[in-house]
């Protein structure tokens, strides 16, 4: 470690800075855009000097979109709420179903367990439309179309395999003997799962939950096809900004900023568990 020369250190810093700049610039620019009117955004050449305005946020919160063609009704706030509800609900259901399944796949080797696990993962390879079209028809028949319940169900296609595969890896990494040591001391299989395996897999569960939430949050096609306006998440709702009189860049940017916030908050919160998980590394030794 000490051998790295000053030059190498400097180069490394520069490289890291470039990468950060590359990834952060769009976000930075979007935040700037969200405080500008459409006119200042579209002027040539673009400039970072402008008179900041909150009008975009006001429009989103009040649900009134002012365009040259007149005032349009948008329900961005209810879209945001839908996103939150659908994503959180899907992740919750995904965790409840996925964690025990992951434990079973990780610990118990039964005939065909690999095949079943792989089949579940393979749902992620299929193009969503392949599943969606037949599903739409079924859902209409059994009355699940355009319900939160139905949507959360379909979201499991994205969420469940992800949780299953990530958490399973974590369960497999816990030495089986730690669980045996607990079981032999007079504990049932279930209490061993709860008191030994679950806490040790926590970082994996946090990571999987976080990723699943982001995937669910960013999903577009399921809700587009299966939900009507009042149940649509922001990803679909954002289509409303494409109006007859052009795209409302300012509002789109403000909408993006608002819709990043929940995932950002969640990431910061889950980070604690992720880091804790890393410092627990001795388990794997």
């Amino acid at each position: 470690m000490d051998q790295t020369s000053t030059l190498e250190k400097v180069l490394r810093r520069v490289a890291i800075s470039l990468v950060i700049l590359f990834f952060m610039f769009p976000i930075f620019w979007i935040v700037l855009m969200s405080f500008q009117t459409n006119e200042t955004i579209l002027r040539v050449p673009p400039s970072v000097i402008f008179e900041p305005t909150l009008s975009n946020y006001v429009a989103l919160v009040t649900g009134k979109l002012e365009t040259q063609a007149g005032t349009l009704e948008i329900n961005f706030m209810s879209n945001l709420w839908n996103s939150l509800f659908l994503s959180a609900g899907s992740v919750a259901v995904g965790l409840i179903l996925g964690i025990p399944a992951a434990y079973a796949f990780g610990r118990i080797k039964f005939r065909g367990s690999e095949d079943i696990a792989f089949t579940l993962l393979s749902f992620r390879f299929a193009p969503p439309l392949l599943v969606l079209l037949p599903l739409t028809i079924y859902f209409q028949k059994i009355g699940l179309a355009d319900t939160y319940f139905g949507l959360i169900w379909v979201y499991q296609l994205i969420v469940l395999p992800l949780i299953l595969w990530i958490v399973r890896g974590y369960f497999e990494d816990i030495p089986a003997d730690i669980e045996y040591a607990y079981r032999i001391a007079g504990h049932s299989w279930f209490s061993t799962f709860r008191t030994v395996a679950l806490p040790l897999a926590m970082p994996g569960i946090a990571a999987a939950g976080l990723l699943a939430f982001i995937f669910a949050w960013n999903n577009f096609i399921f809700a587009l096809v299966l939900a009507s306006a009042d149940k649509q998440p922001v990803t679909v709702g954002a289509l409303a900004f494409v109006t007859a009189s052009g795209i409302q860049y300012g509002q789109v940017a403000a909408g993006i900023v608002l819709s990043i916030l929940p995932t950002l908050a969640l990431a910061l919160y889950a980070q604690r568990y992720l880091v804790e998980g890393l410092s627990l590394g001795a388990v794997k030794g």
Partner: peptide, 14 residues
Amino acid sequence: HVAMAFEGYSLYPT
């Protein structure tokens, strides 16, 4: 009703 000391120790890390 047996007790065991494991080759790899297997203490509960938490």
